[in-house]
Design a protein around this nucleic acid. Structure first.
Length: 371
DNA sequence: CAAAGGGCATACTAGTCCAG
DNA sequence: CTGGACTAGTATGCCCTTTG
C-alpha cells in the first residue's frame, strides 16, 4: 500500500547515498556568504526589501539559509533551537513544513506558489506527506506560521513572527544545521533532532541534568534517551572529585548524602596513582553530531521579538553549580562571588575505553565549594 | 467525514550501578 | 525526603497517516 511505499522511500532516504534531492534551486556550492548576516528577509518585510534581498541572493547565487552539512557534505537546513523546542511542543509536523518552505524558497522571497509546494512535498524526492495530510497541516497553521493567500500563494512568516505566535521568547544559543534528509524522514526523527538541537546550540556543553532538560525542552527523561539514539547524541559522564580528608568526608557526606562513592585513581589522572578519592556524580553533558550554524540575523530576530514580547530576562531560578573549563577561570569567578559551587574540568576524558556505565566518555571535575 | 492500524510518545515501576 | 543515570518491561492512549 501507500503506507509501505512511504516506508520504503524513507528507508531509501535513511540509507541515502548520493541523495537525489533538490535538483532545482539546490544550494550545492558552499556559500560564500556564510558567516555573513543571513540575507533572508522577514516574510512580512516590504516589497523593496524583498527586491534587495533577491538581488543580493542572485549575486551571491547560493541559498542564504541552506548550507552544507560539514560531516556528511549533504544539504542541511538552518534551524533555531528555541523555535525547534516550540515546534516540538506545539506542532512538530508543521514545524517541519515551515522549515521545508524556507528550504524551498532559497531566495528568501517569503512566499511560494502553493501548487508548487504541494507538488514538491507530496511527490518525488521531497515527498513528506500525502496531499490530504499536507492540506490539514497547512490549514491548521494558517495565519500562524503562514498565510494562504487568495492568489494561490503561501506566504510563510518570519522567524520573529513565528516566535511571537508560539510565544517562545528570544532565541538563545547558536542556530543549528539539521540535515535535509532528517526533514524528509519520519516525524520521530524530526522531533529527535528538534530536541537534539538544544544541545547543539549551547555555547558550552556543560553538565545538565535530564530533569533540567525536560524543563527546558519539554521532553521527558525517558524520551530524551530515545531521542539521543535517534539523533546521535552521546552522553558524557561527569564525576566531581572531592578530597578525602576526614573533614572533607563529613562535608561531602553532609552535602551529597548517599551520592558519594569511592574513586580509585589507578591511572593517576588526578594525582598519584592508586590514590583514593571521594567522588560525586554530576549530571551528564552531551555531544551531538549536528553542526552549529552562524548566528546570522539572530540579533535582528531577537530585536523583532522584543517588540512583540516583553519578558523578564536574566537567570530565573537560583543556580547551585557553575562550570568552568579550567581552574583559573573557576577561581576568578569564585573570588568574585563564592556563593555557588564552582566546578572546573580536571582531566581530559578517556576516549579510548567506554565504560560499562556510560558506554561513552568520562570527564572528571574538581569543585571549589560554596561558602 | 469516518475509520483503522500501527507507530509513537509517555509514564511508571523496579532494580542496578558507580573506572578498567 | 539531599545523586544521577541507565535499562527493561509494561501499559496506555494519542497521533499520524492513509484510505473507503
Amino acid at each position: 500500500e501507500a503506507q509501505k511505499e512511504l516506508e520504503r522511500r524513507r528507508a531509501e532516504l535513511a540509507a541515502g547515498s548520493g541523495l537525489p534531492v533538490c535538483q532545482h534551486p539546490a544550494p550545492t556550492a558552499p556559500s560564500p556568504t556564510q558567516g555573513q548576516p543571513d540575507p533572508a528577509p522577514a516574510a512580512a518585510s516590504s516589497a523593496s526589501h524583498n527586491y534587495n534581498y533577491a538581488m543580493l541572493a542572485r549575486q551571491h547565487s547560493p541559498a542564504p539559509r541552506a548550507s552544507q552539512h560539514p560531516d556528511t557534505d549533504r544539504p542541511a537546513i538552518k534551524t533555531y533551537p528555541t523555535l525547534n523546542a516550540a515546534f516540538y511542543a506545539n506542532n512538530p509536523a508543521a514545524g517541519r513544513v515551515w522549515y521545508l518552505l524556507r528550504w524551498l524558497d532559497p531566495m528568501g522571497r517569503g512566499w511560494l506558489d502553493l501548487a508548487e509546494v504541494k507538488k514538491r512535498l507530496t511527490e518525488g524526492s521531497e515527498r513528506v506527506y500525502c496531499g490530504r495530510r499536507l492540506r490539514q497541516i497547512l490549514n491548521k497553521e494558517n495565519g500562524r506560521l503562514w498565510d494562504l493567500t487568495a492568489n494561490g500563494r503561501i506566504r510563510y512568516k518570519s522567524p520573529a513572527k513565528v516566535a511571537a505566535a508560539l510565544d517562545c521568547g528570544r532565541f538563545t544559543g547558536n542556530p543549528v544545521d539539521i540535515p535535509l534528509h532528517v526533514f524528509l524522514g519520519g516525524i520521530k526523527q524530526v522531533r529527535a533532532h528538534f530536541y537534539a538541537s538544544y544541545h547543539s546550540g549551547r555555547k558550552e556543553n556543560n553538565p545538565i541534568s535530564r530533569r533540567t532538560l525536560r524543563e527546558l525542552t519539554g521532553v521527558p527523561e525517558s524520551t530524551q534517551r530515545v531521542y539521543d539514539k535517534v539523533a546521535g547524541v552521546t552522553a558524557v559522564c561527569n564525576w566531581s572529585i572531592e578530597n578525602n580528608t576526614r573533614e572533607h568526608v563529613e562535608n561531602a557526606a553532609w552535602k551529597h548524602g548517599r551520592g558519594i562513592f569511592e574513586f580509585t585513581d589507578w591511572q593517576g589522572k588526578v594525582g598519584e596513582r592508586g590514590r583514593k578519592y571521594l567522588a560525586v556524580r554530576l549530571p551528564n553533558s552531551y555531544e551531538t553530531t549536528q553542526a552549529k550554524s552562524p548566528k546570522g540575523r539572530q540579533k535582528k530576530i531577537n530585536r523583532a521579538i522584543d517588540l512583540v514580547i516583553k519578558r523578564a530576562r536574566g537567570i530565573g531560578s537560583s543556580v547551585n553549580r557553575i562550570y568552568f573549563p579550567n581552574g583559573n577561570a573557576a577561581v576568578k569567578a569564585y573570588n568574585r562571588n563564592p556563593e555557588h559551587d564552582h566546578y572546573y574540568k580536571l582531566a581530559l576524558p578517556d576516549s579510548k575505553k567506554p565504560s560499562k556505565l556510560t558506554s561513552g566518555r568520562l570527564m572528571l571535575w574538581d569543585c571549589i565549594g560554596a561558602l
